[in-house]
């Protein structure tokens, strides 16, 4: 759709503007009425009024977290879809979010973990473990890595992890109370420190992903051809996997498992800019941030004054999309 380089750069700029607009909307709209003026004042002339506290402690962190998490999940999905050539690949379907959640719940329940750093590393460990298991299982068998097998292995591992998570939660009701909203996937009530704690990993993952575009393009031509062109495919795949673990792990640590963004966004990005991964990845990042911001804003209005967890919103948008992709056909 957007085929020339100037247009693509223009598109990125427009996307960036739109995203900033959504960040603004996310700060302003909600149960408490807030004007743009108050936002500016709360930054420069903080006066401890209720509105100012809400802006600084709730709305701004929330908007920034939604943007960061949305971007990471979308980029993780784009890289997974590129590496596995599976249009349904994404952190949630492949059990990576479930693995990260299990480790975090384990930490909270058995070791009483409360430190942000430990949280993050637990999430990374879980994400990495799930990724390794699913990838290994999916590539077993005579016909190697097939999209269907990978999806099934992902579903089974996700089921295992979520069943174990539930097992822990039935034993520990206090933990249940603590993590239930987190488990549903939400960007509400998260502190900015949480984002700052994972920001290095998150940014590292995003930067690596942006520089992987060229290698991903070569890999898309097929493994044999890529090797023939002098690419160390193993290295590319390992880097890709590490990026996915960093991005998905930090997202889960901040916001809990939020599904379907990783599936939807890369498809929209490819529809917009074609299959060139040098553009698909930045577009995915922007679109992912926009989708999660928009989903989070609408989540406040559906059952006001209560809120729908944003993970439920993305599932409601994502499931029909998923069905549509699966119906359109997936090569076996």
């Amino acid at each position: 759709m957007i085929q020339t380089t100037p247009l693509r750069i223009g598109g990125l700029a427009a996307g960036l503007l739109l995203m900033l607009l959504l960040v603004w909307a996310s700060i302003v709209f909600g149960l408490t009425d807030i004007t743009t003026r108050m936002v500016v004042d709360s930054v420069y002339r903080f006066d401890s009024s209720n509105e100012h506290i809400i802006i600084r402690d709730a709305r701004i962190p929330r908007a920034l977290i939604a943007a960061a998490v949305g971007a990471s999940l979308a980029v993780a999905g784009a890289i997974m879809q590129g590496l596995t050539k599976n249009p349904l690949a994404s952190p949630s379907i492949f059990g990576i979010n479930a693995g990260a959640s299990f480790f975090v719940v384990l930490g909270i329940s058995f070791f009483g973990t409360a430190s942000l750093n430990a949280f993050t590393w637990l999430a990374f460990t879980g994400a990495a473990l799930a990724a390794v298991i699913v990838y290994t299982c999916g590539s077993m068998g005579r016909d190697g890595l097939t999209p269907v097998k990978l999806t099934l292995a992902g579903a089974a591992i996700a089921a295992l992890f979520s069943s174990m998570t539930q097992g822990i939660l039935t034993l520990d009701e206090r933990a249940l109370d603590q993590v239930l909203f987190w488990l549903a996937g939400s960007v509400q009530g998260r502190e900015l420190e949480l984002l700052i704690a994972v920001l290095p990993y998150l940014l590292g993952g995003l930067v690596f992903a942006l520089f992987m575009g060229k290698q991903m393009n070569v890999l898309q031509m097929g493994e044999d051809l890529a090797t023939g062109l002098g690419q160390k495919t193993i290295l590319v795949k390992l880097t890709g996997a590490a990026v996915v673990v960093l991005l998905a792990g930090s997202s889960v640590a901040i916001a809990g498992p939020i599904g379907f963004i990783g599936i939807i966004i890369p498809h929209i990005a490819r529809w917009l800019v074609g299959i060139d991964y040098r553009w698909v990845i930045p577009y995915s990042a922007l679109l992912g941030a926009m989708l999660l911001l928009a989903a989070d804003i609408s989540a406040r209005y559906i059952i006001m004054p209560a809120e729908v967890p944003v993970g439920v919103m993305t599932a409601a948008i994502g499931a029909p999309f998923f069905v549509w992709i699966a119906r359109r056909g997936i090569s076996e």
Binding site: L88, S92, I93, V148, T151, L152, G154, A155, A158, S162, E173, L176, D177, L180, F181, L183, A184, G185, G259, F260, I303, A306, V308, P309, G311, V312, T314, A315, A316, G318, A319, F322, V323, A326, R327, I330
Partner: peptide, 26 residues
């Protein structure tokens, strides 16, 4: 196709289930 669609819908259902648990009393 049936299996894949089942996997996707099952993920969506889990999200809805969690929502019901969040909205209901502890």
């Amino acid at each position: 196709r049936l299996v894949l669609i089942g996997v996707g819908l099952s993920a969506a259902m889990q999200a809805m289930t969690t929502m019901m648990m969040v909205l209901g009393p502890i």
